[in-house]
Computed example of a mutant assay.
Amino acid sequence: MTVPTALPIVQAPMAGGPSTPELAAAVAGAGAFGFVAGGYLTPDVLRDELDRTRALTSDPIGVNLFVPGSRAPDPAAIGAYAARLRPLAEELGAELGEPRWEDDGFDAKIDVLVSAGIHTASFTFGCPAPEIIARLRAAGVRVVVTVTDVGEAEIAAGAGADGFVVQGAEAGGHQGTFDPARRNETPLAAALDSIASVGLPMIATGGITTAGDARAALDAGAVAVQIGTALLCTPEARTSVPYRRALLDRTYEDTVITRAFTGRWARGLANPFAVEHSDAPGGYPEVHHLTRPLRAAATAAGNPDVPNLWAGTGWTAITAEPAADVVRRIGADL
């Protein structure tokens, strides 16, 4: 499997806000591969997002979905976490959310993808069942699975995947580990080296924000690179104002891997909430639903100390230029 674009660059699907049809179209127009982020969307909204993207570009596009996981292993721990967060909720004038499990409309979204005429479906948080992959491939859809180690890659290959998104520990946002309790500490270069033995094409992601980063990943065996953090402050992204300011103003000194926001390990800027609650219990999406009203209230108030501000380790290279310019800069000489 190769990326069907002039440049070996893929736009990361950044669910929950930053990804937009305009971003996917701008990336595609610059010669790279655009993605629609299907996570958190209802099946009907996903179809609308695809229609809007198709109205903006006729280039090949992809869609990313979250593979449903198991219910939280320790509901009592989530209850105790809620009690810790209650004073903050009162301070923000918000109610804590219900820590509920759901499958994010997974099966209905698969139905959408089968009939949508997309080029690629990518998956994170696990590997879809072989029959789902076979159904998508029968509809002409290529399937790639986010993996972080060779064991996950072997599972995905055995299920019929066409390739991998190999995610290093440098990546911003959620870690794609199949086991949500396992924190990924493997750098991208090491992950590419070990997963190459499985023998399927690899798209590299994690900390790639410059042309040098992209060249290093391709030289390490990737067929393409996936960029997300580099696109967060483009005008086409739906990144919130406090999120943009925190990135561009260097409000926080570093990034941190934390479970504070969603109950799944994820990398973001080291704001007070991420740091103070890094020991939050596991349980996705229960913790995500619990903290979501707090994050929304803080964002609405322009307060960057509470929301998740996903960012990879290369975040200090972020600029506020248009998406096409970012793609061309990273794709220089590839």
Score class of each variant (00 low, 15 high):
P99S: 11
G93I: 15
E102R: 10
D111H: 09
H119G: 02
A108Y: 03
D103C: 06
L92D: 11
E102Q: 10
T120I: 02
V114R: 10
W101H: 14
W101E: 06
G117R: 11
A83M: 14
H119K: 03
A82D: 07
E95D: 15
L85G: 04
G97S: 13
D104C: 00
F106V: 02
G93E: 14
L88E: 10
A121N: 00
R100F: 10
G117M: 05
L92S: 11
L96I: 11
L113I: 01
T120C: 03
G105Q: 02
P99R: 05
A94G: 11
G105N: 03
P99L: 04
S115H: 15
T120M: 03
G117C: 06
V112W: 01
L96M: 14
E102D: 15
E102N: 13
D111P: 05
D104H: 08
D111F: 04
G97C: 12
G117H: 09
V112N: 00
H119M: 00
A89E: 10
D111E: 13
L113K: 03
L113Y: 00
H119W: 06
G117T: 08
I118T: 02
A89H: 12
E102H: 13
L96D: 09
L92C: 11
R100V: 12
A121F: 00
R100L: 09
